[in-house]
Amino acid sequence: MYLLMLVLFLLCALVHLWASAARRVTLRRITKPLLMPLLLAFYILSAARPEPLAAAALLCGFVGDVALVMPGAEEKREKPHPLLMAGLGAFALGHLCYIAVFIRGVTRWPSVWTMVLAAAALCLLFIKIFLELRPHMGALMPTGTAYLVVLLTMAFFAGMSGVAGGAPLRGMGGLFFILSDYILARSILLGERRCTHLAVMSTYLTAQTLLVLSLL
């Protein structure tokens, strides 16, 4: 049964990515809310002991997907759209759920130097992204900054728990999540590019899939 869920997820993902590339807005809005429930079904059916918080993270992704796919949610305006704020909140909560899963699953962390170097690299990445986007954030400054901190924290624990547990896909998933949200942030704050939706969703789906696979 889990193979059927995986096939359905991959088919839905391919259709959604095609719709994103071809700018078929209606089809994109129909397929996007189906993605995380199908991935969640695959995870529950394939994991020996599914983590409730991992399932909650995917459900938060579903809520964020629905919020951001609604008309006007990703448009830049003087005051952030309530759907954009709801989407950011849902994804931030999902990242917190992932953090809890990653921390709880580690019995022995990597060396101190490994963790310090990883933290330093992510701090530099935070500075780079923040300085680039700060002039354009406006009213999104507090929320966007807090979200970036949560996102990078999730990526840190994904990478470190992946190293500790021999699950390199987890760290890769965290990095793809950063890339996806960075592209989305540039799209919202600096203006949409032609292939933005395709770039955001391809990296986002890669991120979620890698995180799920690392937990099996």
Rank of each mutant, 00 (worst) to 15 (best):
A13K: 04
S202T: 15
L211Q: 03
C97G: 06
L210W: 05
L190A: 09
L3W: 13
T143G: 04
F176C: 14
V163W: 13
P37K: 10
L11N: 10
K79S: 14
F130W: 11
A55E: 11
T206M: 15
R23M: 10
R23I: 04
Y182A: 04
V116H: 05
F42G: 08
A22L: 09
A146M: 09
G64F: 00
M141D: 05
F42R: 07
E192V: 12
Y147H: 15
L34V: 10
T26L: 13
A86L: 15
A19Q: 07
A48G: 07
T153A: 15
A48D: 13
A185D: 01
P135C: 09
L34C: 12
A119E: 04
L68T: 03
T107Y: 01
L17N: 03
A100N: 03
F177W: 05
L3E: 14
L133S: 00
G173A: 10
A13V: 15
A21L: 12
E74Y: 01
E78M: 11
M160G: 02
G72R: 09
K32G: 02
Y204G: 00
E74F: 02
R28G: 09
L152T: 14
R24G: 02
P168T: 10
W113I: 14
E78C: 07
F126P: 00
R49I: 12
G61M: 03
C97W: 04
R186A: 04
A13R: 04
G173W: 03
L96P: 03
L169G: 05
L58T: 05
T145Y: 05
A119V: 11
A92W: 00
F9S: 03
A48Y: 07
Y98Q: 06
A185N: 06
W113G: 03
A185K: 07
W18N: 08
M172L: 15
R170P: 00
R28H: 14
M201Q: 12
Y98E: 08
G162D: 07
V15L: 15
A207D: 01
P80W: 08
F91N: 06
G89F: 03
V69I: 15
L84P: 02
